[in-house]
């Protein structure tokens, strides 16, 4: 199996060495630098997830990806994720087809909700319509990526009749993934639409998701589609030692989960729960290069997945800490995982 390794960010707002938050503008410039450096470090993919908050000031990640594309040659670039339900599928397609043009065919799209909901009131959508919005728009998106004139009608946007949507891609359809959190019906939908599966595993034992990979494989067979890859997306932080990685990440993780817990229904993290999540059966990849590599290799095997995306960073970490994380991931973790899996 050929494995690929990515890094994803939500534009987590950086702090300086004294813990003072940097501006949104500086954080965005730092993300562009991190994307360029990811290529130099040997990472295969760099993804930016859409968010609209003070601590994740990243609503237009495709613009940042274009800046990275202009300064790189090889690294693939995409969203992680695009909140399709509160966007226009035609515009999403056009933006990523444009990124594909600029980058010479390196663009990808991961569609989903993330666990973010702030875009719904911002753009005038009702969360209660979430399922219908996603189902309709994902179906339209599947038509758009085929290329050629699109005819479509639904309730969530204006109809299209033989519409030629530009720009045309020169290197075939964009790779499209659907991000899934734990709903088996979403796995079936990804297979039905012919999109690859991205398992977002942010808590608890990753092995429980093995059934989702099997479900995806069987559903693809049932819909008469060829096999498609499965990706694992999980948060983490790499430093030279386990102790240093945990010491840097824990207070930032605690603060952000405590902040969003009331609206997401998360439990407030404790040092005990953090130790469980960073241990071999948890969802967080926090530690030295060897610790993180062992965990990635083990979970890719168990989950039958061929791609791993580390969601690096956390609001309050410094740009320098993130650059070290990227250097260790590209320089040590990725080669070690490849070795472990060969």
């Amino acid at each position: 199996m050929t494995y690929t390794f990515g890094l994803d960010t939500f534009g987590d707002r950086n702090a300086d060495a004294d813990g003072k938050p940097l501006s949104h503008a500086q954080t965005i410039r730092n993300v562009a630098e991190e994307g360029v450096f990811a290529e130099q470090a040997g990472v295969d993919f760099f993804g930016i997830g859409e968010h609209h908050t003070e601590y994740f000031p990243m609503p237009a990640g495709d613009v940042v990806l274009a800046a990275i594309a202009a300064r790189t040659e090889r690294i693939r670039l995409g969203s992680a994720v695009t909140v399709l339900s509160s966007d226009d599928p035609v515009r999403v397609y056009q933006r990523y087809a444009t990124l594909n043009a600029i980058s010479g065919g390196r663009a990808e799209v991961i569609l989903g909700r993330g666990s973010s909901i702030e875009s719904f009131p911002l753009f005038g959508y009702d969360l209660a319509d979430y399922e219908e919005l996603f189902e309709e728009k994902a179906t339209l998106f599947a038509e758009l990526v085929k290329g050629g004139p699109v005819t479509w009608a639904g309730k969530t946007r204006a109809p299209l009749i033989g519409q030629d949507v530009v720009p045309h891609t020169e290197s075939g359809p964009l790779p499209v993934w659907i991000g899934v959190g734990g709903n088996p019906q979403s796995v079936i939908r990804a297979a039905r639409l012919g999109f690859s599966l991205a398992l977002a595993i942010i808590g608890g034992p990753p092995a429980r998701f093995a059934a989702y990979s099997q479900l995806f494989e069987r559903a693809l067979e049932r819909f008469g589609r060829p096999p498609l890859p499965v990706m694992v997306h999980s948060p983490g932080h790499i430093a030279v030692t386990d102790e240093q990685a945990k010491a840097e990440f824990w207070p930032r993780w605690r603060d952000i989960i405590t902040l969003i817990a009331p609206e997401r229904g998360f439990a407030i993290p404790t040092e005990e729960s953090f130790d469980a999540e960073t241990g071999p059966d948890g969802a967080l990849y926090v530690g030295s290069p060897e610790t993180v590599a062992q965990k990635i290799a083990a979970n890719l095997r168990v989950l039958g997945a061929s791609r791993f995306d580390l969601k690096y960073g956390m609001p309050g970490l410094t740009h320098e800490q993130l650059m070290t994380n990227i250097e260790l991931y590209g320089g040590q973790v990725i080669p070690r995982v490849r070795e472990l899996l060969s």
Binding site: F120, D126, A128, Y130, E263, R264, G265
Partner: peptide, 9 residues
């Protein structure tokens, strides 16, 4: 009934 994840009903 969880307006933050499902919207206001």
């Amino acid at each position: 009934y969880w307006p933050a994840t499902e919207g206001v009903l």
